[in-house]
């Protein structure tokens, strides 16, 4: 995906400039978006090792806990940074094995639409990332109301919307995350902890045989 994005770099810069960015700023945003995809691509097969555990239970059992994707995640992407913001919230969700429905920035949807072409030419399986354009004010409630959505991410600091979203998320106890004032250009804009937000921890137990009272050393 990062390669495909890089291949269309000029187009993304052009679109960002069309939507109120400067050339220098747009170039920086596209470069960071490319790097962010590479960053999360690397995490795909590593975060599990970091956040798993073999638990030393006192009984005669083998017991381990691993992260698993929560399922379908509905994302309302940041309204500013229409490319970098979008990539920064989608990448950790799909790197963790979830699928998502993402609502692009309301007033700056161009990059999101072009990003869909990037996804398509990257051979990302159909349905993993679904991009919608529209108004968050109209669609937010559908994102949190839907009974087949497992988690919702909202990136604006609008406390009224946050309140409504949390209330409605109770219908099926969706996991809900508000990324308030995250600076997507800085280091705080990327970390495996974003991946862990949409993971569940599953713990598995199995007995360990005790042969004729022998200790664990046998």
């Amino acid at each position: 995906m990062a390669e495909m994005l890089e291949g269309r770099k000029a187009q993304f810069i052009y679109e960002l400039v069309q939507q109120d960015s400067t050339k220098a700023k747009a170039e920086k945003e596209v470069n960071l978006a490319i790097d962010r995809l590479i960053y999360y691509a690397g995490w795909c097969d590593k975060f599990q090792q970091l956040f798993s555990a073999v638990n030393p239970v006192a009984s005669s059992h083998f017991n381990f806990s691993v992260p698993e994707p929560t399922g379908v995640v509905a994302i309302i992407a940041p309204q500013s940074d229409s490319l970098l913001g979008l990539v920064s919230v989608v990448a950790p969700v799909i790197a963790g094995g979830n699928t998502c429905v993402v609502l692009a920035a309301e007033t700056k949807p161009l990059c999101a639409v072009t990003f869909a072409e990037v996804l398509n030419s990257s051979d990302l399986p159909g349905g993993v990332v679904n991009i919608l354009t529209g108004k968050p004010s109209e669609l937010a409630s559908w994102f949190v109301d839907h009974m087949d959505v497992n988690a919702t991410i909202y990136c604006e600091n609008n406390s009224d919307t946050q309140k409504t979203m949390r209330e409605k998320s109770a219908t099926n106890l969706k996991r809900i995350f508000f990324y308030n004032n995250v600076n997507w250009y800085s280091e705080e804009g990327q970390s495996p902890y974003f991946i862990m937000d949409t993971q569940e921890i599953k713990t598995t137990w199995h007995p360990v045989e005790n042969i004729a009272g022998a200790g664990g050393g046998y």
Binding site: A53, N55, P56, V57, A58, S59, H61, N63, S65, T70, N150, N172, L173, E200, I201, K202, T203, T204, W205, H206, P207
Partner: peptide, 23 residues
């Protein structure tokens, strides 16, 4: 499910995370 017991059931330990998926 958050806890899966294979060939055992209802085992608990302070070192073992417990909690659910979904509702």
């Amino acid at each position: 499910a958050g806890v899966v017991w294979a060939n055992t059931f209802n085992k608990f330990d302070p070192t073992s995370p417990f909690g659910g998926y979904k509702e």
